[in-house]
Every structure is written in C-alpha cells, then in structure tokens.
C-alpha cells in the first residue's frame, strides 16, 4: 500500500514536471539570422564602403555568394540552430558624382538547421534550398549613399548611407524579421599612398525585439566596423587590394553585453580593373571568423563576389 502511494506521488510529480517542461518550451517565431549586410555594389569592401563615387552617371552590377557555418548558435552550450546558410546576391547601383543609389536582392541557396530546443525555447527547423524554395528572395534592400566631405580618392572622405530592408523572406526559415528595417550609417574612407581604409558607425533600426529568446533580435542596434588594406600589384589597368575588415553590432537593449553583441573579422582580397574606357571587372574573395558565438555570429564565413562597373566619365566634382 505504501509502495503504491509512493508510486502515485511519483507519477503525479512526473506529470507536473512534464507539464512544466512542456510549458517552458516556448515556440520561437524565427527571424533573420543573417548578420552580414553586404556593402552596396561598387563599394569595394564586403561590408565597409569606399565612398569613391565620382564622375558622371555610372553603373555597377554585382553578383556575390556567401556561406556561413553555424550562423546561429544559442545558449551557453552553443547549440547550433542554423547549421549552414548560403546566399546569393544580385545587386545593382547607379552612381552620379557623390551619390550612389543601390538595390540588392538576396536569395537563399541553402539555409539548414535541425530545429532544436534550447534554454526552454523551441526553435523551428530551417529547410531552405533551391528545390523547395525555387524563387525565394529574402529581404530586398534599397540604399542611398552620399560622399559629403573629401575628394573621391583623397585621404579622408566622410559620408552618410541609408538602407531600407523590405521584408519578403519567411521568418520561420530565418530569412527575415518580417518587418521593415532600416540602417543609417556614418561612413568614412580614404586612400593614403599605397593604403586604403574605411570605417562605419551607425544604427540598425530593428523593430523586432524578442527579449529573452537567446540569439534573437533585441531591437535596434549600434553598428560599428573598420577596414584597412594595402594596394598591391598596382598596374596601369588593374590592382589588387588585400586587407582585413572587422565589423559588428550590439543591441542597445544590452549594450556590448556578450549575448547581445556580434562581431566578425574577414580577410578579403580584391582584384579590380582601373583603366580603359570599357566595362571594368572586380573580383572579390573573403573569409573570416566569428568573434564570439552569440547573437547570430557564425563560426566562420566565406564570400566571393564579381562586379562589373562602367568607368565613370572624368569627374567634374
């Protein structure tokens, strides 16, 4: 009799624990897990902006592809929610003197994740590939950048850039926040002899705030980053630039706390045409590491880009 009472108590306790456990597994809606916001076509770097718009009407057409390994890991045990993500991007820009208007279309090639429970939250599985999503575009971006101070190839250039994200991807597949977003940045760049540099500081206006969900957006963020490169093998018609880019974001809701801050470092190299009157080519390669493991920071990332740009007419500005 005593034994059966104990069993009953255990059963009731077990059921309660199960119920509590079930309650604790709060479903996560999903959000944009891609942290990298590629720079506008023609801007040279992968993330920074070279602010070298000049001349009369010019244009850039860019295709790039990027892969991130474990771009979304959560909790102290770094459980990978999204294990792999690969995107292609087609983008175009029109430049005129000190202005650049750009349009970027990201399309997921593969976004994969097993769907995990971590920290009491149930993250949806990601299963995106070209077969199941043959025509998906994740958030479309429209941008306007302006160089306000400095010559286009001078040692110090300062400008402003703004981008608008138009939501179009699925939140449950980690392709979109499902909301409009914006980005306003103060941009700086320069050419000093055989070296070039760039930096940005800005605000990512992000309405989504999933406070308490590890790895999820925590509202608007401060953006920061810097890059430096050396011009190598500079010839009459082409040059190669190699250098690092470091960039990141931290949510104002948890300013520079580890769980609300992401940072990455890339080493990039680009070969670009610099002479002639016909269309010029730029080829970019990059690879890098996530600095830390929280807030949608990948363990590593690789990128490739190809741009065709029309050489601007001699600058009049």
């Amino acid at each position: 009799m005593r034994s059966s009472r104990t069993s009953l108590r255990c059963a009731v306790l077990g059921a309660l624990l199960c119920a509590l456990g079930a309650q604790a597994q709060t479903p996560v809606e999903g959000f944009d897990a891609e942290r990298l916001a590629p720079s506008a076509p023609g801007s040279g770097w992968f993330v920074m902006d070279s602010l070298d718009m000049h001349g009369e009407l010019g244009g850039v057409l860019a295709f790039s592809a990027r892969y991130a390994h474990e771009p979304l890991r959560v909790s102290a045990s770094r459980v990978p929610v999204v294990t792999d993500s690969a995107y292609g991007q087609i983008a175009g820009a029109v430049t005129w003197r000190f202005l650049r208007f750009s349009l970027g279309f990201d399309f997921p090639l593969a976004v994969k994740g097993p769907g995990v429970t971590a920290g009491g939250f149930q993250y949806p599985a990601a299963d995106v590939d070209l077969g199941s999503n043959p025509d998906t575009l994740s958030d479309v971006r429209v941008g306007l950048d302006a160089r306000l101070i400095g010559e286009w190839n001078g040692p110090f250039r300062l400008g402003l850039g703004a981008q608008l994200w138009i939501p179009s991807g699925e939140t449950g597949q980690y392709l979109s926040d499902g909301t409009y977003r914006g980005m306003v940045r103060l941009l700086a760049a320069g050419d000093v002899a055989a070296f070039i540099w760039a930096a940005h500081l800005g605000v990512h206006v992000r309405p989504r705030d999933d406070g308490g969900v590890p790895g999820a957006p925590r509202g608007s963020e401060l953006l920061f980053g810097a890059a430096a490169g050396a011009k190598l093998f500079q010839g009459e018609s082409s040059r190669t630039v190699i250098g690092p880019e470091v960039y990141g974001a931290t949510a104002f809701a948890g300013f520079f706390k580890p769980e609300t801050t992401s940072a990455e470092a890339l080493l990039s190299a680009r070969w670009e045409g610099t002479g002639g009157t016909g269309p010029q080519l730029r080829v970019k390669l990059g690879a890098g590491l996530g600095l830390g493991s929280q807030f949608a920071t990948p363990s590593w990332r690789a990128l490739v880009g190809v741009e065709v740009f029309t050489p601007s007419a001699p600058p009049h500005d």
């Binding site: 087609i90 279309f105 399309f107 025509d135 998906t136 575009l137 479309v140 138009i166 179009s168």
Partner: peptide, 8 residues
C-alpha cells in the same frame, strides 16, 4: 504581396 525572383 509576395516578392520573388521570377527569372535569373
């Protein structure tokens, strides 16, 4: 409204 890549 759904945005998609119609052709590439």
């Amino acid at each position: 409204p759904q945005i998609y890549r119609a052709r590439l």
